[in-house]
Amino acid sequence: MKNQFTNKLDKKFIDAKARNRAALMPFLTMGYPSQQLSLPLLETLSENGADIIEVGIPYSDPVADGPVIQASSQISLENGTTPEKVFDILAAYAEKKHSATLVIMTYYNILLQQGLENFVRQCRDVGVTGIVVPDLPLEESKMLKGLLDEYQVHLIHFVPPNISEQRLEKIAKQASGFIYLISVTGVTGKRKQLPVNLGPLCSKIREYTQTPIALGFGIGSAEQVSQAAQEVDGVIIGSALIEELKEPQSAIDNAAIFMREVSHYE
């Protein structure tokens, strides 16, 4: 089952490892703060140190997200953002051959209503290399996983800190692309401290799989990235970046500054 295919996402982790760095993965809500800014923001992140960009297709009821990303989704929806418009933006990004590869984050109902295969095909067509679906636990993921394997797009699984050994083993066996390690219980949003038990948890995961581990939920500063990079292969930065993008006039400059800052972690 494992590693039936590799794509640019796997390569990004291999390259980062070769440089002895963690792969940096900022999260960007598409259509926030405006639809016009989404493409230039993606380009800015790619040019300033992002290896992978997690792009959010907004959903009206994002239960796994904290207040910052939730509010950005709501504004994006008010801006009229639809999955179709997001794919247009991603297609434009793909044309310009940027360095950072794209992973989509959205909720399962959005995939279902576009039609699973149609959605997956569109992902492949615009060069998306992975999909993160926060409300799709292992039990419900078979159908999507089958399609994604066919189209060579990774389905990213979550591993929460409270996971049982048995479940970890099952998820690790399925894992491809990367494992999305949740650093703390709760929802997305930056927090002051990283959990202390990161090391043992990573060791446990690595007993079952070679798939890279990326840490998400609660990371917002170069200092935290630096701490995390000692244990994991990639770091996801969500709310802390989104908070910098409130004002359309300064969004691009702020994104560039933020990305440079976190990518120059010690």
Binding site: P134, P137, N162, I163, S164, I171
Partner: peptide, 11 residues
Amino acid sequence: GGMFVPELLVP
């Protein structure tokens, strides 16, 4: 039916 929730809630 089903259980379409974050992995975190599965336990």
